[in-house]
């Protein structure tokens, strides 16, 4: 399989070439275009029960599409995300990564999809009881609204909830008010996410919540 992420960073889009026998699993709706002989099958993401957990308690879609090249020639596939922004790539080598709702785009065989308990504080922040967890060996594509920043957390780090895209499971999340009740309301920071532990996090430079708040104030 060959891949290239073009139109970075504003309109990052994944252009893939699947060789004969190659398989790729992608988020429902991620396919923009593809060569017609490529076969596409819809499956429950990670099986029925994890799929249901993800759908109803994690804010992810219940289904994924599996693309398989059953022909004898290389075939093209183009995958994208619904927001504008950058696309990142993680090569898993036995480690794991958790995604916030909406960030996952696709993964290669060898990677398993599962769910990770995210805690009640995540539930209260409207981000689901469970997070999508990918483990195993292979490539994982994920998207962000805006640019992507990678940061190593060692100990204690605070992020705005809407800007977190992905994190390693060694990190615990504690959602809380940014600076006391009055301060949080007046500063506009609202809820923040205090991360503790060891691992890498990925942040997006814009948040869809921010866009929604902006547009909401313009509607009348």
């Amino acid at each position: 399989m060959k891949y290239e992420i073009r139109y970075k960073p504003a309109f990052a889009t994944v252009f893939l070439t699947l060789n004969p026998g190659d398989r790729l699993t992608a988020e429902a709706g991620a396919m923009a275009s593809m060569a017609a002989p490529l076969s596409m099958q819809t499956e429950f993401s990670g099986g029925l029960i994890p799929g249901l957990l993800k759908k109803f308690l994690g804010g992810e879609s219940l289904f994924v599409n599996v693309f398989t090249n059953e022909t004898q020639q290389p075939l093209e596939l183009v995958l994208t995300q619904s927001t504008v922004g950058d696309v990142g790539l993680i090569e898993l080598q036995g480690n794991e990564i958790c995604f916030q709702p909406g960030a996952y785009i696709a993964h290669t065989p060898g990677v398993q999809m599962g769910v990770q308990w995210a805690g009640f504080s995540s539930w209260f922040a409207g981000e689901g009881l469970f997070k999508l967890r990918l483990s195993g060996r292979g490539l994982v594509f994920f998207g962000a609204y805006g640019g992507l920043s990678q940061r190593r957390v060692n100990g204690d780090f605070t992020v705005d909830t809407g800007h977190l895209v992905a994190y390693e499971p060694g990190i615990q999340m504690n959602i809380r008010l940014a600076s006391g009740l009055i301060g949080s309301v007046t500063s506009g920071e609202g809820l923040v996410n205090r991360l503790t532990g060891q691992g890498t996090v990925y942040l997006q430079s814009r948040s869809t919540d921010g866009l929604v708040r902006f547009l909401r104030s313009k509607l009348r």
Binding site: R6, Y7, F11, T13, E27, A28, G29, A30, M31, A32, S33, A36, S39, M40, Q41, T42, S61, L62, F63, V64, N65, V78, T80, Q81, S82, V84
Partner: peptide, 29 residues
């Protein structure tokens, strides 16, 4: 895909299948 159920559940819904020879312009988003 291969099944109608999958077409709707899989989020791709309906797609356009082009045949023949010619130029096609797509938008990334």
């Amino acid at each position: 895909g291969s099944s109608w159920v999958g077409a709707f559940l899989g989020g791709e819904g309906l797609v356009c299948r082009f045949q023949g020879q010619g130029r096609l312009f797509c938008q990334t988003h």
